[in-house]
Write a protein that binds this DNA or RNA. Structure first.
Lengths: 342, 342
DNA sequence: CGCCGATTATGATACGTTTCACCCTAACGC
DNA sequence: GCGTTAGGGTGAAACGTATCATAATCGGCG
């Protein structure tokens, strides 16, 4: 059925070893032979079998990336950054979408483990550290993405979410808001709890400000819309005067839920700030204030760390990279400014 | 280094064949033996080597999916649909992003071919038919996605883009627009040319309406913004009174480019309609009219066709599924209606 | 002309799994 | 008690590649 090196070798009148050399180290083979083998390959339509190659090599040329939500532009940008960086070293990136679900996460880890990936990038949901440690023992380096490793036992690249939460809420307070709602969840997700923690710290500096936490099942537009509608249904006096959403998807959904068929004005009645600064944030109904993260840079840096860790034999080289987020103010939190966007 | 079935077998005191049976057909093995083997697996931390498995099987348990733009929600939704359907048959989906670039597309095809994927889903950019035919000869079925196969030589699942283009422009004409601009590109992409074709047909029915084609390099927010700014820079009299964007990403960008620091009103001065109806369309500055496609359904149907084709031995079973798009009217094309959204 | 080193080519081997033809044993029917 | 059968288990073979020790070839030089 399938064409193998053996048949190529036969047609070209050389040994299989030579064919392999043409494929992998053409400089070690005479020009004339190279040509002859290449012709045979062409003629037979030979395509190298990656499974055999991997089996022999003991390791694949791919790295696995498990993200929380492949539909979130923040993660697609991150993936794009990772892919570009990996490509420079001839590595492919396998993308897995855990959808914030520990079970799905586990099944992707299993898949990647069976594939003997060259490395693993993950934004963890469940309790995966033991599994990751097992992987490491096998020689598969792991880098935690968008999440700081608590005990420096893994390399990680993250953005300071506590600082980001602090920024967001400080900003809301500065524009005069006092009844703030935090919308996000599930609470088990580190990014969410850190952003909330930052928000709380900002509050601690202003005793007159209160915060209400509204937990969601996931960080999606749909969930945001549901919460928005719930808030809209409240009597005016019980509504917050500002909302800090744990990400932009929620914020966009909130905007829909709050404004549709409603007299609520954003930001006049309720100011709104999101997180991630996805490309759509600047063009939503009311352009969205947000906390910007360098998504593509996170991805490429993660691959960088991964490769560095893979190259190091002594395994005490765990690096923790932490980027600082940036406040982007747009119309959703500014009554006066005519946002000039970017 | 790595643990193999052999060592598991040794520890459990059985043969390798039995271990394999426990892994793949546990019902064929005595309960007691199963337990013993499972314990050995656990104890040694054995993880099945997928490369060896594939090598033996001759085929992988993954299907490849090559899309035009992994950052476009239309395609992430499509991918999600495909993944969910594939999972039901125990298949993984490998996602490749061609970024509308023939070279990248080629390299993903090569990768998938080397991986001996069980099947291929592709939204083609370049001239890939010969390569796909070669794949088919090898026994790898292919389904064209979001693109009708011209000569019924491949299975395909698509949406009638000509009809969609017709819908969009008919709608613009109906609300009284006469100077229409079509924004999209590159022209080589079938979806773009079909939508334009549909637009032209709609025009043919109204001799007083003119169309201007503005070609873009890609279908992204950035490109849309650039075109929007170019239109904004024109003298008022030379601006179109309606724009049909080849997808929502462009439309969102156009919205940004047209409205920022500008007195142009949408839809009063320029009506705007996009294509795909991504989740963000309903929550943009001006909620966007669009042509809706059943993205997840396209993905799952494509996998369906793929599996059906893979099951068929006689190879004359190419099916062409064509869905009809749906016009979604929102504020960007309606001066009067206070959009009730969904 | 013969020797040597360098350059090329060879081909057996191993990677870890699944499969399949075969063996063993115990139970069953007659 | 013997033949038959079925259920469990065995282990060698094969999948297609890369590697590496070995062999062949060549050119140059003494």
């Amino acid at each position: 059925m399938s064409v193998s090196v053996r048949e190529v070798a036969a047609l070209a009148g050389v040994s299989v070893g030579t064919v392999s050399n043409v494929l992998n180290r053409p400089d070690k083979v005479t020009e004339a032979t190279v040509v002859r083998v290449r012709e045979a390959i062409e003629q037979l339509g030979f395509v190298r079998n990656d499974a055999a190659r991997q089996l022999r090599a003991g390791r694949s040329r791919s790295i696995g990336l498990v993200v929380l939500d492949a539909g979130n532009p923040f993660f697609t940008d991150l993936a794009r950054g990772a892919e570009a960086r990996a490509l420079r070293d001839g590595l492919a990136v396998l993308l897995g979408n855990s959808d914030e679900d520990a079970e799905r996460e586990r099944s992707y880890l299993e898949l990647f483990e069976e594939q003997r990936v060259a490395g693993l990038l993950i934004t963890p949901v469940g309790h995966v550290v033991p599994r990751l440690e097992r992987l490491r023992e096998r020689g598969t380096p792991t880098v935690l993405v968008d999440r700081q490793a608590e005990n420096a036992t893994f390399s990680s690249v993250a953005v300071d979410d506590v600082a980001g939460g602090h920024m967001a809420v400080s900003h809301l307070v500065e524009i005069g808001r006092r009844r703030i709602a935090f919308v996000g969840g599930p609470a088990g997700i580190r990014q969410v709890s850190d952003r909330l923690e930052g928000a709380r710290r900002a509050l601690a500096e202003h005793s007159t400000v209160t915060i209400e936490v509204i937990e969601t099942e996931s960080l999606t537009v749909l969930q945001g819309r549901a919460v928005g509608e719930a808030i809209r249904a409240r009597p005016k006096s019980e509504r917050p005067d500002a909302i800090f959403a744990a990400n932009d998807l929620l914020a966009v959904g909130l905007l829909q839920g709050l404004m549709i068929l409603s007299d609520i004005r954003v930001p006049e009645d309720i100011a709104l700030i999101g997180y991630d600064d996805i490309a759509f944030a600047s063009s939503s109904v009311v352009p969205l204030s947000s906390i910007r993260q360098p998504s593509a840079l996170i991805g490429s840096t993660a691959v960088d760390l991964l490769l560095r860790e893979a190259a190091t034999t002594g395994d005490f080289a765990h690096e923790q990279v932490v980027f600082q987020p940036e406040l982007i103010v747009r119309a959703s939190t500014s009554t006066t400014v005519a946002s000039s966007d970017e």
